[in-house]
């Protein structure tokens, strides 16, 4: 009920406040990387970021009002997309580099030491360039991230019980709030109505690219884990197993 009274400005301000702090890898990086050392650094960082991602999701107005099962399903469907959008945002002002954290920055070429990762790095760099061209604003970025989370599991099996139906309807209302907020953020940029519509289209279309890279990244991580290149543990393992077992 309180959400009905919350306008886009307040919604954006709440999700801006929910933004996680910078996360540091805090490891002595021994260069040149080996396949294992790079994969271990990437997965260690992802594991730390995942813990803060749960905290972030909980601060999105209305998220905790969804059923616990919806909360779990949404997070397990989108975690890598969220990590990738964060990476893109950190890297947007650093052409040719991927800023995984303030103390873990990689050039495209450094991806050579991990089999199959260069292709993923290139897709991430291409998405970053596109966001750079569009001059993505922080307000828009936080809306896109919330959109990824709330949209991640929308086309799965239809709700059966009344609790599931109620949660589903709350989820749809929440998505409306996020879309309203993104539209509002775009409206503040001094564009014509047509330019605003086009910008909304371009930004949301980029989300399908991020979903695609995330799927590639998921396959890659599963391969690395299967080949014992990297040990995956803790929350990341739980999320990954969740992902592989659900197909």
């Amino acid at each position: 009920h309180h959400r009905a009274a919350m306008g886009p400005e307040e919604f954006i301000s709440r999700i801006m406040e929910a933004e996680p702090p910078d996360i540091y890898l805090m490891e002595d990086l021994k260069k040149p990387f080996t396949e294992t050392s790079m994969m271990m650094s990437l997965t260690n960082l992802a594991d730390k970021e995942l813990v803060l991602m749960i905290s972030w999701a909980k601060k999105i107005p209305g998220f905790l009002e969804l059923s616990l099962s919806d909360q779990i399903h949404l997070l397990k469907c989108c975690w890598l997309e969220i990590l990738m959008l964060g990476l893109i945002w950190r890297s947007v002002d650093h052409p040719g580099k991927l800023i995984f954290s303030p103390d873990f920055k990689l050039n495209r070429e450094e991806g050579q030491c991990v089999e199959g990762i260069m292709e993923i790095f290139d897709m991430l760099l291409a998405a970053t360039s596109r966001f750079r061209e569009l001059k993505l604003r922080r307000e828009e970025y936080v809306c896109l991230k919330a959109m990824i989370l709330l949209n991640s599991n929308l086309c799965s099996s239809s709700p059966q019980t009344s609790e599931e139906l109620e949660s589903r309807s709350k989820l749809l209302r929440l998505l409306d709030s996020v879309i309203d907020s993104l539209v509002w953020a775009i409206s503040k940029l001094g564009l014509t109505t047509q330019q605003q519509t086009l910008r909304l289209g371009h930004l949301t279309m980029l989300l399908s690219h991020i979903r695609h890279v995330s799927n590639k990244g998921m396959d890659h991580l599963c391969t690395m884990k299967r080949k014992n290149v990297v040990l995956v543990y803790d929350l990341l393992l739980e999320m990954l197993d969740a992902n592989t077992s659900s197909g």
Binding site: V51, L52, L68, S69, I72, K76
Partner: peptide, 24 residues
């Protein structure tokens, strides 16, 4: 396996009222 058992850490972090930063 129930969702709760399958996603023990995730479940715990979602339900816990203390900051996950502390748990990390």
């Amino acid at each position: 396996t129930s969702l709760k058992e399958k996603h023990k850490i995730l479940h715990q972090l979602l339900q816990n009222s203390t900051s996950p930063v502390d748990l990390a």
